[in-house]
Design a protein around this nucleic acid. Structure first.
Lengths: 219, 219
DNA sequence: TGTCAACTGTCAGTGGCTGACATTAGTGTC
DNA sequence: GACACTAATGTCAGCCACTGACAGTTGACA
């Protein structure tokens, strides 16, 4: 179960706070090691040692070696889903998705900072994109999120997600475009939140035109 | 299975034929074990033992435990890419993609049969979709294929895939929709090639309408 | 303060995967 | 057919991810 209180909240008693501290330390240490010497070249023992806990303890916090790399990402996704849920039902589906992303990008930076430096998160993102094993997990996680989004969209529109293909189709197309934007961002030089926000906007603008039959008439 | 193509070709010398036989046997044994007792519950030792080779030999044919599950899939993808390459450049991008898929589905069955029973491949597909570790690899492989397709489409249209976002955007949306179709097929009861072909067609038809702003005006 | 439960460390063991080296078995040549 | 050459395979040792079992430690709470 993910920590329900990710913010600077007092977080219950001493035991709970200690746990949170260990978890955050493991994330920080892991990401630092991964980005510095590479994911494969880093052993779980090293991560555990850096935080001064046993390997066994690491595996009590994270199910496997990959999971720790997505701890921050999980926060970001939760934020997006919250924004999407909050969009008014009067908005058209694609408009709601688009707005939720845009709003989410605006305050995700500070949320990340509560666990690790944003700059480290940026480097981690690039590392994920360039590490096959992590890329695979990243994509699977994305597809699970995709399913959640489709159900939410279907709910807004009063549709049965299994009977009407449109929610899944739209969300698949939307997420596909988002993934491309993320990839291009990772390859680029500008590691700012502003740049990914802008890229997202631009790519979503291209969605409808790209589906048009003939690209040659309107260059 | 009429075998109109020289699929049963002599394939070089004895050594080469033996190698091919071992490889096919490993695939068959692995898929049979995976689908019967589950992917995780099957060890590489079991697969190797079923074919009467050493574990080390298995790893000389396949880089890891996952790879063997995608050997047939790889054939299918190659077939699709060949069809896509063969489409006339006068076709609009989405039309070419669509046509290539449709043509490919038509004769993929017999190509698969040359290695394993189609029915086993169907069960394997479902197993992949329901095994997280394999699903992750499946998605990564798909995204790599996606990149190839985008470059091919860009080439057809005389565009720079890095400068013009439309190829990647279209392909991302297209592949997203294809993936949803595959998923729905895997969940359904009809395990025929005809049914996935039909599903694909139907879902692609929904693509453009789904992107429209308002779903309520044209139900 | 003492009891309980949560957290952690240690240890042993399984399974995926690799490098090194010896052995076996097609291939081409005389 | 004997012979060297080399690809394919088997064996073995070892690393690393991951897990179950058990014991020790430390917050929580009456």
């Amino acid at each position: 179960m993910a920590t329900p209180t990710p913010q600077t909240a007092p977080a219950g008693g001493l035991r709970a706070r200690k746990k949170q501290r260990t978890r955050d330390a493991l994330i920080r240490a892991a990401l630092e090691l991964f980005t510095e010497q590479g994911y494969e070249a880093t052993t779980v023992d090293e991560i555990a040692e850096a935080v001064d806990v046993s390997q066994r303890t690491y595996f009590r916090y994270f199910a496997n070696k990959e999971d720790v790399a997505f701890a921050v990402q999980e926060m970001v996704e939760a934020r997006f889903m919250a924004e999407l849920t909050a969009r008014p039902a009067t908005e058209a589906p694609l408009t709601a998705l688009r707005s939720a992303v845009m709003v989410a990008w605006d305050d995700i930076g500070s949320a990340i900072e509560s666990v690790i430096p944003v700059e480290l998160h940026m480097r981690s993102y690039q590392m994920i994109e360039s590490t096959p094993a992590l890329m695979a997990v990243h994509l699977r996680r994305s597809s699970e999120l995709e399913e959640q989004i489709a159900r939410l969209i279907a709910g807004r529109e009063g549709l049965d997600v299994d009977a009407d293909p449109r929610p899944r189709v739209l969300v698949a197309a939307f997420c596909g475009v988002m993934r491309v934007a993320g990839k291009i961002w990772g390859e680029g030089a500008d590691c700012s939140v502003a740049s990914i926000r802008e890229l997202t906007q631009s790519y979503l603008d291209h969605m409808a035109p790209a589906i048009d039959d003939d690209w040659r008439t309107h260059r």
